[in-house]
Design a protein around this nucleic acid. Structure first.
Lengths: 246, 246
DNA sequence: GCAAAAGTGTTCTTCGTACACCCATGG
DNA sequence: CCATGGGTGTACGAAGAACACTTTTGC
C-alpha cells in the first residue's frame, strides 16, 4: 500500500453476500432471492448488497440479513466466510464480494422481505443437479458455505444455532443428521451432548412435542468450542477455510 | 446487488495484505516491512498492495508475495485468511483489505525485496508486549493469521510447509512444538506421524544433521487432511475462521 | 565407550461404539 | 397395554499417554 494513484486503479465495488442456512421440514435450506434485473435476470442468487460508507463489513452483513429476513443478529449466528474477487465475476464492473455465513433456526415467517421482491428458502439438495444455475459465482460461494457449516458444527456448539431457543437433545441430533447426511446413534449422542460441559444448559422444563417419553428442554450453553469434538465419520474431508471460531 | 448508483457509494480501494510465517532459529517469525510514507510512516506493517484490474485476489496475493520475498507460489502455502473493512482503518480513504496467510520454509535469503525498501523477519514473540505497534489494524490481522496457522496444522499436513523439501520427523515435530509453544513426546510423535498415511513420503535417504543416530528423510505426502488429527492439549481454544482445506 | 538422537515395544487408561435394557408419556 | 421416543448401563475394542528399552551415529 504505497503510492496510491487512482488513475491506475479502476473503480471497485464491494458487496456482501449472504449464505443463510436453516433447517425446514428435515431439510437443509438456503435463502435465495430472484434477480429482477440484468445480469442474470430471473435467476436465483444469494441475497446481498453494496457496503455503505460508514459501516464495517460485519455491519453491512447484519443490515442485509435484517433487510432480507427481518432477523436481528442476536437471533442468528453470522460469521465471515470468504471473499471473492475474480475480475469478471460481475459483467458490469469489478465487484469484490465479501461472503458471510449465517445459521438460523427455522423461521416462523419464511422471510419478511421488506426489500427483495422474491425471496425463498430452497433445499440445498434440490440445487445439486439443477438446470437453472445460481447467478454470478454464487454456486461456488454456497458450496464453500455449506462445507464451512458442516465442518464447524464438529468442534463448536454452532449446531444449536439451527434450533429454536429451547430444544431437546433429539432435535439437536436431527441437526447433525441433516447437515451431515448420516444417522447417529441416539443414545450415544445423548450421552455425549449432555456430558460436554457448556454445550447444553438445562431449563428444567420438558416437552412431549416429539412423542414418547417427555424430553428435557435445553438452551444453548456458553461453550463456543467443544472438546472433545463431535466427529463425523471420515468419509468426506472437511475442507474449507474456517478455523474454529470467528 | 440491485441498482448501482456510483454517486451513492464512495470509491473503495481493495488491497491484499500478507501474513507470511516461517520458522527461523527455533522461533516463529512473520515478514514485516517498514513503511516509508504516511500514514504510520516508519512503523512496521504487513506486506501488501492494491489489486490490479485483471487479476483475481489469489493472483494478487501471489504477486505481492513474489515481490516481497522472491518466492513463487509453489514453494509456499498460501490461503485466504479474512477480509477487513472497518470504515476508518486507513485514514486516507476507504480501504478493504483481503488478508492472506502464507507458510514458508526457512528462506535462504531473508528476503530479496525487489520492491520494499526494508523488509524483515520478526519473531512473533517479540511483538507481544511491544511499544511500537503495527500500522493500521495489522496486529489484528496478524493475530488472526497466527491462530489460523496454529489451528490448521492440527488437522492438515500443513506443518510440513514450514520444513524444507526433505525433512526428518524430528524437524517436523519441532514445527509443532514451536507453533504451539509446547513440548511433544518424540517417540509417540514419531509413531503417529509415520503411521498417518499420506502425511510423510519416505525418500530412502538419511541425515545426521541433527546429531545422533541417522534419521530418515521424508518429503511432504499427498494427504491434505490428517485423520486422526494431531491434537494439541485443550488449553487455548482454536478459534479462527478457517475450516480445514481452502 | 559415551552422549545424543532415532526408533520400537509395552502397559495403562481413556474414549468411542454397539446394543441390551428400563422409563414415561399418549392413545 | 402397547407404541414411541427418552435416557442409562455395560462390554468390547481402538487409540492416546507415559515410558522402558534398543539402535546407530559422532567424537
Amino acid at each position: 500500500m504505497k503510492d496510491y494513484d487512482p488513475s491506475r486503479y479502476p473503480a471497485v465495488a464491494v458487496t456482501v453476500d449472504l449464505v443463510v442456512l436453516t433447517i425446514r421440514d428435515d431439510e437443509l435450506c438456503v435463502l435465495l432471492v430472484r434477480r429482477g434485473e440484468a445480469p442474470f435476470k430471473g435467476q436465483w442468487a444469494l441475497p446481498g448488497g453494496f457496503i455503505q460508507p460508514a459501516e464495517d463489513l460485519d455491519e453491512a452483513a447484519a443490515r442485509e440479513l435484517h433487510e432480507e429476513t427481518g432477523l436481528s443478529p442476536q437471533d442468528v449466528y453470522v460469521e465471515q466466510l470468504a471473499t471473492y474477487g475474480a475480475p469478471r465475476r460481475d459483467p458490469r464492473m469489478r465487484v469484490v464480494s465479501v461472503a458471510y455465513l449465517a445459521l438460523a433456526p427455522d423461521l416462523p415467517a419464511p422471510q419478511s422481505g421488506s426489500d427483495a421482491a422474491d425471496a425463498r428458502w430452497t433445499p440445498v439438495a434440490s440445487l445439486l443437479g439443477r438446470n437453472r444455475r445460481l447467478a454470478f459465482d454464487h454456486e461456488l460461494i454456497l458450496n464453500d458455505g455449506l462445507e464451512r457449516a458442516r465442518s464447524k458444527i464438529e468442534y463448536t456448539s454452532l449446531a444449536a444455532a439451527f434450533c429454536s431457543a429451547e430444544f431437546t437433545v433429539a432435535e439437536l441430533r436431527r441437526v447433525y443428521e441433516i447437515v451431515w447426511g448420516i444417522t447417529i446413534d441416539a443414545r450415544n449422542f445423548h450421552r455425549k451432548a449432555t456430558k460436554t460441559i457448556g454445550f447444553l444448559e438445562p431449563t428444567g422444563m420438558t416437552t412431549t412435542r416429539d412423542g414418547g417419553r417427555p424430553a428435557q428442554l435445553y438452551r444453548r450453553g456458553s461453550a463456543e468450542l467443544l472438546s472433545p469434538p463431535l466427529v463425523r465419520p471420515a468419509d468426506h474431508a472437511h475442507q474449507t477455510n474456517d478455523q474454529p471460531g470467528a
